[in-house]
Simulated assay, not measured.
Amino acid sequence: MANSANALPETGFLRLPQIVGNPHANPPIPAIVPVCRSAWWLGVREGRYPKPVKLGPRTTAWRIEDIRALIASL
């Protein structure tokens, strides 16, 4: 996971497939945090993972700074 944190840009947003990965995408998207989608959303509800930001009515993302802090705490 440390290599993934170094590959992230300094600022911006990440969508869920960029965080938990998507092996069915072409090309496959590697996971930054290796959990399934339902475990990620459970962790968000329980406060283990960062809160999302709504960018639009059907667009949810997370701040890269929050994901970097999560990786550092793991």
Rank of each mutant, 00 (worst) to 15 (best):
M1D: 06
M1I: 12
A2K: 15
N3R: 14
N3S: 14
N3Q: 12
N3H: 12
N3I: 13
N3T: 12
N3A: 15
S4A: 15
N6L: 15
P9F: 00
P9D: 04
P9L: 07
P9M: 07
E10I: 15
E10D: 15
E10R: 15
T11R: 15
G12M: 09
G12S: 09
F13P: 09
F13R: 13
F13I: 11
L14N: 05
L14P: 14
R15L: 11
R15W: 00
L16D: 07
P17Q: 03
Q18F: 04
Q18L: 07
I19S: 11
I19P: 04
G21T: 02
G21Y: 06
G21I: 10
G21E: 06
N22T: 03
N22H: 03
N22Q: 11
N22V: 07
N22M: 05
P23F: 04
P23N: 04
P23T: 06
H24Y: 08
H24R: 10
A25Q: 09
A25F: 03
A25P: 09
N26Q: 13
N26E: 09
N26M: 08
N26A: 11
N26D: 13
P28W: 03
I29D: 01
I29N: 06
P30R: 11
P30G: 07
A31L: 10
A31P: 14
A31I: 08
I32A: 07
V33R: 07
V33Y: 10
V33I: 15
P34C: 00
C36H: 07
R37F: 04
R37A: 12
R37Y: 00
R37H: 00
R37T: 12
A39I: 08
W40G: 08
W40Y: 09
W40M: 11
W41E: 09
L42M: 09
L42Q: 14
G43H: 04
G43V: 01
G43C: 02
G43D: 01
V44T: 04
R45V: 03
G47F: 05
G47V: 08
R48I: 01
R48E: 02
R48T: 04
R48W: 05
Y49G: 05
P50Y: 01
P52M: 02
P52I: 04
P52K: 03
V53C: 08
V53L: 06
K54L: 05
L55C: 06
G56T: 07
G56P: 04
P57Q: 08
R58A: 12
T60A: 01
A61K: 11
A61H: 01
W62M: 01
R63D: 00
I64G: 05
E65P: 03
D66Q: 06
I67P: 03
I67N: 00
I67C: 03
R68W: 00
R68M: 00
A69Q: 13
A69G: 05
A69D: 09
A69V: 06
L70I: 02
L70G: 05
I71K: 04
I71Y: 06
A72K: 12
A72D: 14
A72R: 11
S73V: 07
S73A: 15
L74H: 07
